[in-house]
Every structure is written in structure tokens, then in C-alpha cells.
Design a protein around this nucleic acid. Structure first.
Lengths: 112, 112
DNA sequence: CAACACAGTTCTTATTTGGAACTTAAGGCA
DNA sequence: TGCCTTAAGTTCCAAATAAGAACTGTGTTG
């Protein structure tokens, strides 16, 4: 079974996962909440490939979670901003943040 | 970059995602919160392949989110139950559920 | 004109996943 | 005894997805 097949699952958690249930998508959303909005920012912040970022941004725009807004006419450039639907995803990321802070402390071995 | 490389990221959201940031892992956790605990249950409930379930359960046990408990000696059989660390993941799933309920209503076209 | 920035796209290779079949270890029963 | 069933995995190959690097288009800067 493919994960996109979950989009009409009876369970709202499954439906949500069919949309954002992948590492990079959620990382992009985190970046949006941190105030980022541009392609290059997502690339360097997440460490995902440009290909992936491109694909995930499209998905998020299609889903109405992000909105593509023009911020320059020449050359044509766009940025991605959270819609209200996207804003309302905040509690999930906060839950992830809290859980991570509590249960996955950073190993500082390499920071000497 | 591989997603498991996120495990020592500065961001707690990223660290959390390196562990559970994938569709099937979160679906398994949902099932655990719904009271499921056995391999075959996860297989039929999520629709993921046995291979995937096997892999994800191992990860979750390694991470201390699930605990493998013997429920039969002959034949040897195990079930997977949430640890306290796992229990504390509930708010994240609740956030997913709430968001899904509000923003991704089921299309009932096929239920007529 | 050459170099740079941004936002992608394209290409090839590597990794992950899907799907089905197989394994191991009993238990039921005819 | 032999055959079917259940449970929990493992193994195999083909298909899908991702990684990494290079390339494209469009315009600005020196």
C-alpha cells in the first residue's frame, strides 16, 4: 500500500500523515514557523536535496498549507508562506518539539 | 543527507523526526494508542508491508518508545507496548488528529 | 563580458519500499 | 500421522523514491 492511499482513510491521523507524514515536509513546515519562506532557505536549513524541497513545496501548496507568493517581478521569484490552514499545524510541531526536548537531548560529544 | 542524520540536529523537532518522522512509524504509534500491540494487528491495521512493520518496531524498541514483552512461551511470542516515553508522544498524535479532523474531512463519494 | 544569485529541473546512481512467498514453532483435528 | 491454521517474522526481486551533482533560465553586479 502506498502512503498517499491514506488520504481517504477513516482515521484523521492517517489522513494527516498522507499529506505531511514525511521527514522533510515537516521540517519545511518547521522552517516556515521559524520565519523562513524561500526555496534556498529550505534547502540549506533542512539539508534535503533541491529536488525534494521542490516536490514537497508543490505538495504543500496543492494542499493549501502553503501559499506561493510573488516577491519579485524581474526576475520572477516566489516565496512560500503559511496559510491559516498551515498556521493551525503549529500544535503538532510544538508537541514534537516538547517531546524531542524532553526525550532526545543532544549528544554534545562533537562540540568540544 | 539521510534523515537518520538528523538525530543530533540542534532542533528538537528535527531530532524527533529522525526517529518517528515517517508515515508508518506514526501509524504504528497511533495503533498502540488504540490498544493494539501485536505484529499482525499492525500489519492489517496500517496496510504497510510486514517488512516495514518489522523494521519500524525494531526502531521503536531501540528508541525506548515501545517495549517488547513476551506473552507466550510456547511458541515464543511477543507484543509491543508503549513505554512512558512512548505514552508521552500522545499530544503529537492528538494534534495530528485534530488538524486532520478539521482540515481533511473524508470524501464520502465511495460510500453511497 | 564574466561572475553571481535564486529557483528550479534533469540526470544517474543508490537506497528504500512494495508485494508475495517462505520459515519457524506450535495447536487442532480427522 | 498428516494437513491446516495462527503468529511473528525473514527473504527475495521488482518498482518507486531519494541522494548528489550538474545544468537551465533570468536577471543583477562589477
Amino acid at each position: 500500500m502506498k502512503w498517499t492511499d491514506l488520504d481517504d482513510n477513516w482515521c484523521p491521523v492517517a489522513r494527516t500523515l498522507s499529506l505531511v507524514g514525511d521527514r522533510w515536509t515537516l521540517l519545511i513546515l518547521r522552517d516556515c514557523f521559524l520565519g523562513m519562506s524561500r526555496f534556498e532557505q529550505f534547502v540549506s536549513s533542512t539539508g534535503a536535496t533541491r529536488h525534494l524541497i521542490s516536490d514537497r513545496l508543490k505538495r504543500l501548496v496543492d494542499a493549501g498549507i502553503l501559499e506561493k507568493q510573488s516577491y519579485s517581478e524581474r526576475p520572477k521569484r516566489y516565496e512560500y508562506v503559511l496559510t491559516e490552514k498551515g498556521q493551525e499545524f503549529a500544535p503538532a510541531l510544538v508537541a514534537f518539539k516538547d517531546w524531542g526536548k524532553k526525550h532526545l537531548p543532544v549528544r554534545r560529544a562533537s562540540l568540544g
